[in-house]
Simulated scan of single mutants.
Amino acid sequence: MSEPPLKPVLQKPPGYRDPNLPAAAHSGFRPPPRKPVLPPSFNPRRRNRSFRRVCCCWLCIFVLVLVLLAVIGGLVFYIWFDPKFPVFHIRSFRITRFNVTERPDGTYLDAATTTRLEMKNPNVKITYYYGETEVGVSVGEGGDETPVGTTAVPGFTMWKQSTTSLKVETKVSNTLMDDWVGKRLQSRYRNKILEVNVEARTKVGVSVAGLKVGKVAVTVRCDGITMKELDGGDMPKCVIDMLKWLNIH
Rank of each mutant, 00 (worst) to 15 (best):
T202H: 02
M1L: 05
W245R: 15
M1H: 05
V196H: 00
D105S: 14
E145G: 07
F29T: 09
E118P: 03
G142T: 12
A200C: 05
K244F: 10
E199M: 14
E145V: 07
L166A: 04
R45V: 08
F51T: 10
I61W: 12
T133E: 04
I240A: 07
P32N: 04
V216I: 13
M242N: 03
E229Q: 08
P147E: 04
P86F: 03
I225K: 10
K125C: 03
S41W: 10
M1K: 08
L10D: 01
V37K: 13
E3V: 12
V76A: 10
R190Y: 12
V100C: 04
L194H: 02
K183S: 13
R91P: 03
T150E: 06
R184T: 10
P31H: 06
V208F: 05
M158T: 05
W80P: 00
V216C: 03
L117H: 02
F93M: 00
F77S: 09
P236G: 08
G149A: 06
P40R: 04
K12P: 09
C56V: 11
Q161M: 08
L230D: 02
T127R: 03
G73C: 11
D18S: 13
V204Q: 01
P86G: 00
P236V: 03
T133I: 04
N174V: 08
S173M: 11
V220D: 02
C60N: 09
T127F: 02
M235Y: 14
N99K: 10
W159I: 07
V63Y: 14
A24E: 14
P8H: 07
R49A: 00
